Amino acid sequence: MRAELAALISGTLFGAGLAIGGMTDPVRVRGFLDVFGAWDPTLAFVMGAALLVMAIAWRFVPRIGTPLLAENFHLPQKSDLTRKLIGGAALFGIGWGVAGLCPGPGIAALVIDFNAAAIFAASMIAGMAIVRLVEKASG
């Protein structure tokens, strides 16, 4: 129950931060990505703040023996670049540029503009299902 409550609070705080920061507004996101056109730098401040918070947090992780709600930290173990990783990152970037949303803000946007965000969320879920089917068939 404690972990579920922490997840609810964390998710709510994360979603509120995305909404307040403008990350759930596809027009603003596309403006941020349009570096050679009508560039809107406001999201750079949102991303910069997130990087600053994470840089500070990563300094504390080695000093903390175990997390509050788990037995250990689940830190990335792989550092190799694969074709699958690069292809996935490219698809993510293309989707972000076309839709103006990525998964976190897309889910948070369901509260703000359900109809538009629902199309994005349904497309995202369909894409994940297709990848699973293709991987299962090829592998």
Rank of each mutant, 00 (worst) to 15 (best):
F73C: 06
L5N: 09
V111F: 14
A19P: 05
A122C: 10
L68T: 13
L18S: 01
L8S: 10
D80L: 07
P103R: 11
A108L: 04
I86F: 11
A16N: 04
D113M: 08
I130P: 03
G97M: 10
A3D: 08
D40E: 15
S123L: 14
F114I: 12
R28W: 02
R63S: 14
C102V: 11
G106N: 04
I56S: 02
D40N: 15
I86V: 13
I112K: 00
A109Y: 10
L52K: 03
T82P: 04
K78P: 00
A122M: 06
I119N: 01
A7V: 07
I119G: 05
P41I: 15
A49I: 12
G22K: 10
I9C: 13
A3S: 10
V98T: 04
A126R: 01
G17R: 07
A116I: 11
L43H: 07
G31A: 09
L43R: 02
M1T: 06
A117Y: 03
F92N: 01
L110Q: 06
V131R: 03
V61W: 08
K136P: 03
F92A: 07
R63Q: 11
P41D: 15
L69N: 12
V111R: 03
P41W: 14
V131D: 04
L33G: 00
F60S: 07
A19F: 06
L69K: 02
A7G: 02
I119T: 01
N115L: 09
A50S: 13
I64Q: 14
L133T: 08
A57K: 01
P67D: 15
T66C: 04
G106K: 01
A44S: 15
K136R: 13
K136V: 06
T66Q: 15
A7C: 09
S79Y: 08
A55L: 09
G104R: 06
L5E: 00
S79L: 08
I130K: 00
G95A: 10
I9L: 15
G139E: 12
P41N: 15
G106T: 05
I56M: 13
I107V: 14
R28F: 12
I64P: 04
A7F: 13
F36E: 15
G127N: 05
G97S: 02
V35P: 00
V27M: 09
V134E: 00
A118F: 14
G100W: 00
D80P: 00
E4M: 03
